[in-house]
């Protein structure tokens, strides 16, 4: 234990980190709360000398905006679909990877690639893949109508090309692309965590199960999943937290307009709404929206923890 006399030394060593945290984390949080409760707060006007009354107008305004509610809907929808799907897929892939001996290193690397690739870049690739019209190639007026690879595949199997992300596409088509993209992008981290968990499970449990004649399905359900449950809970909880902060993936596929041409902001999310409010100099609204987002994430995490307390075997 550190003696109290020398505790100033401890503070000294901690101070660089503490100072940075105070400036860039603690103060912004306090300031966010302050701005959220100053009615119609705007940074520019505050510099101009205007004063704001205290109240909850920012909150009531935000939740009455249809724009905000649309953002909330998109965010929740993406979260509720992508987190379970990516978690289950990651679990299955991790189990398969764990049981493969040859090439396992190479396969692990391949599955981990999306994690180390820029999400905007991947988004652009996805945009190209789901495009209905290919890039402009040749002279300015010459448009070569090659569909993206997905539509090519659909047409190869005799289907009709779908307008996924171009002008005139539907919300459902847009969301489908986003769900596929987000699931694919979320897989590597989850696979990594679950694979690590799988490899730390004592092999003797499986040998014992084998001697007892346990079917593969039962081994998975009664041994693998329970023993992996702490990792699964971790993956799901962090998945939801990350999911509610979804933003850059949509920018990656649709660009800053957050929607197909002619339907700007259609796929805007909570974080997107906060950015927009900030850029319009309405920091009060942005802060209120940020606090609402925080409250939602907190609630979901508490529910997650409550459920995992009952189901997770540590």
């Amino acid at each position: 234990m550190v003696e109290s006399k020398s505790s100033w030394k401890a503070w000294l060593y901690l101070s660089p980190a503490l100072v940075l945290l105070l400036i860039f984390t603690v103060w912004p949080i306090i300031n966010t709360v302050r701005m959220a409760f100053l009615e119609n707060y705007s940074g520019l006007e505050a510099i101009g000398g205007r004063s704001f009354s205290i109240g909850i107008a920012n909150f009531t305004k935000v939740i009455s905006y249809k724009k905000f509610l649309d953002c909330l809907k998109t965010t929740v929808l993406l979260c509720v679909i992508t987190v379970p799907v990516s978690s289950i897929l990651a679990l299955l892939i991790a189990v398969c990877l764990n049981s493969i001996k040859p090439l396992s290193r190479m396969l692990q690397t391949i599955f981990f690639l999306p994690y180390v690739t820029n999400s905007i870049a991947i988004g652009m690739v996805f945009a190209a893949m789901f495009n209905i019209i290919g890039n402009n190639i040749g002279s300015e007026n010459e448009i070569i109508t090659t569909a993206g690879i997905i539509n090519n595949i659909i047409e190869f199997f005799g289907g009709h090309a779908v307008n996924w992300i171009n002008a005139g596409s539907t919300y459902a088509a847009n969301m489908t692309v986003m769900i596929i993209y987000i699931v694919w992008n979320a897989l590597p981290f989850k696979i990594l965590i679950l694979l690590g968990g799988l490899q730390s499970i004592n092999k003797q449990y499986y040998e014992a199960a084998k001697v007892d004649g346990t079917s593969r399905k039962r081994i998975f359900a009664r041994i693998t999943v329970p023993l992996l449950s702490p990792m699964i809970a971790y993956v799901v909880i962090t998945g939801f937290i990350g999911g509610f902060k979804e933003y850059s993936s949509i920018v990656g596929v649709f660009g800053k307009t957050m929607g197909p041409a002619g339907a700007d902001k259609r796929l805007n999310t909570m974080v997107g709404y906060i950015y927009d409010s900030l850029s319009l100099n309405r920091q009060g609204l942005a802060s209120a929206a940020a606090l609402i987002l925080f409250a939602i994430i907190l609630l979901v995490t508490l529910v997650n923890l409550y459920v995992s307390k009952k189901k997770v075997h540590y």
């Binding site: 003797q204 040998e207 014992a208 001697v211 009664r222 041994i223 329970p226 023993l227 449950s229 075997h313």
Partner: peptide, 15 residues
């Protein structure tokens, strides 16, 4: 039809 007892027992910890 064998029963095997492992050195470190390998009891399923969650059951």
């Amino acid at each position: 039809g064998v029963g095997l007892v492992f050195q470190n027992y390998a009891l399923y910890p969650h059951m």
